[in-house]
Amino acid sequence: MSKNFKLITEGLVKNNPTFVLLLGMCPTLATTTSAINGLSMGLATLFVLVLSNMAISLIAPVVPDKVHIPVYIVVIATFVTLLQFLMQAYTPAMYETLGLFIPLIVVNCIVLGRAEAFASKNGVLASACDGIGVGLGFTGSLTVLGLVREILGSGSVFGWNFIGGNDGMLAFVMAPGAFLCLGYLMVLFNRFFKKN
């Protein structure tokens, strides 16, 4: 059990997909206009990541080596379609907000990367834990980035406005703010978490 727990914690800091591995940049930048949007996108990716990791660890032994990438992509695309239906049914407003980036989870390099690097070589339980760990790491980074951009851009935290009125710096909600905030957060991460 402790081995699986270690897999989960490793995804959070040591193998953090956003700040260390630099994977999945597009949704990271595009959907973090507010903390709640970042959190939702992270959870959506977590959902696909865990399920596809589990499915792929089960089918990996019987998939011929030559066609393994297309097979993995189809498995991932299936879970993404499932997620699209679930979100359309239960959280239509959030589905509308995240828009294009839900179907684009298919080409998120984190999901295919974990399938290739971990799930295809390990058991179901370990793969699920790896999915949870990396997914939580991704969710965490997106929420933090969303939080920073929301505080600077609209002066609120999780939708709770603390400055009154709409006096935020609009640029931070728009495209330039995404790049700047992620750049500076990465600097902080490098400064405090990376050894050497």
Binding site: A175, F179, L180, G183, Y184
Partner: peptide
């Protein structure tokens, strides 16, 4: 990081 900050400034220009 420095690349991202530069893109940010470039995006600011494109705004």
């Amino acid at each position: 990081p420095i690349a991202l900050v530069s893109v940010g400034i470039l995006a600011l220009a494109f705004m």
